[in-house]
């Protein structure tokens, strides 16, 4: 009974954060801020949903745990690769104050 409630609460938190992550990538002004909202919220959302299902169905628990570990490792890596790629092809980050981009000069120096 307690496990049942715990699983349902985890799934509810998970789907709400999945929704907030998608809303984040819709509302943010540039690629990097979108990546921030997308990566964090969807990672916790997917982790929480998957583990919630694992708690509701105890015989599936080990495999859902494996999926959760895989998501937690792979999501930051892919967003890091995408951020680096976007900066290399010259997408400027959105800034309210000028001159906060300390990575800009580095990527120009590497090309020379």
């Amino acid at each position: 009974m307690i496990l049942n409630i715990l699983g349902n609460v985890l799934i509810t938190i998970g789907v709400i954060f999945l929704f907030l992550g998608a809303l984040g990538i819709f509302r943010m002004p540039d690629v990097y801020s979108r990546m921030q909202a997308g990566t964090k919220a969807t990672t916790l959302g997917a982790l929480s949903t998957v583990i919630g299902v694992g708690i509701l169905q105890p015989e599936w628990f080990w495999k859902t745990l494996l999926i959760a570990i895989f998501i937690a490792i792979s999501n930051p890596i892919s967003s890091h690769a995408l951020a680096r790629g976007s900066h290399k092809i010259g997408i400027k980050p959105f800034m309210k104050k000028e001159g906060l981009d300390s990575y800009e000069n580095v990527s120009i120096e590497e090309e020379k």
Partner: peptide, 14 residues
């Protein structure tokens, strides 16, 4: 940050 209608962000790379 996402729910707030004013979107309180001040991004930059450090």
């Amino acid at each position: 940050r996402v729910i707030n209608p004013k979107l309180p962000i001040n991004p930059g790379i450090v």
